[in-house]
Nucleic acid binder design. Structure first.
Ligand SMILES: [Mn+2]
Ligand SMILES: [Mn+2]
Ligand SMILES: [Zn+2]
Ligand SMILES: [Zn+2]
Lengths: 137, 137
DNA sequence: AAAATATTTGCAATGCAATTGCATTTTTAT
DNA sequence: ATAAAAATGCAATTGCATTGCAAATATTTT
């Protein structure tokens, strides 16, 4: 018998170890992007480095994507439907300056940009800061 | 008598010290955004921390803006015409993966984004990666 | 099942860049 | 000239990502 969690890992060619199942389960339970320290706290007393490598494996296999939200801390969020080979997470990310949470906005795509002549685009990262829907006045 | 460099500092309520004049002059001489280490090399053997604080002062007074280009190193570039009080550098930044230089694209503004209901925008940062005009194949 | 191999994990150590504390020097005001 | 304020230089700290390596665990081969 194989659970849904296990299935999700094996679909991305990741062997389902205990740690990996726990991390995946935790990511699924949260709706915002998480930093390594966040996950570390939830997994205590599991080793930080193991979680780090777990997330790296997830990222390399298209299960999570890495978000640079400008805080200096890498955030991780589950991919919607990325290939094990290639990511295609081209959505905007939102950082709430009140609750300090980082959200994926999967339906908000980064618009095309007209670059000066001679500039060739390969990737884009758009991060928006402000107040999230839960932090209104 | 007061030089143009001195004028530019005093216009932003910054007292023109030797170090500050040198850093400003160097920023003017380069067309890409610079990291602290870049400037440090050019100012050798001047102290790194003094340069750091010089740049911080510049930034606080609207003379330079700080760019987070995703490399993990802060980059500094002269502002076009910012108030001493408030920045309004809403342009796109471009990171060339070949020459590793970061460029301001002052004429390429970040387009408006439609956020989900309840999200209030306060700032945006768009960084585009690719090949710059000097690094074509 | 036992041995050999490959993978995963845990701990220690490293590296890198931003940032701060504090004493010293320099500048400005009295 | 003296006192106050600002700028500088050095040392130290912090906070993160990242790697080396040995121990533990899982997988494959005999
Ligand atoms: Mn996302
Ligand atoms: Mn710029
Ligand atoms: Zn919020
Ligand atoms: Zn280039």
């Amino acid at each position: 018998m194989t659970t849904l969690l296990e299935q999700r890992l094996t679909d991305h060619r990741i062997k389902p170890t205990a740690m990996r199942l726990l991390v995946l389960e935790y990511l699924l339970s949260r709706q915002s992007a998480l930093g390594l320290s966040d996950i570390e706290k939830a997994m205590a007393p599991a080793d930080r480095i193991t979680i780090y490598r777990t997330l790296k494996t997830f990222e390399q296999n298209g299960l999570v994507h890495l978000i640079d939200d400008g805080t200096g801390v890498h955030k991780y969020a589950l991919c919607d439907n990325c290939d094990p080979a290639e990511h295609h997470d081209t959505h905007v990310h939102f950082y709430c300056t009140v609750c300090k949470e980082t959200y994926c906005l999967p339906d908000t795509k980064i618009p095309d940009i007209g670059l000066p002549a001679g500039f060739i685009l390969s990737e884009m990262n758009l991060i928006v800061k402000g107040h999230c829907d839960k932090c209104r006045l």
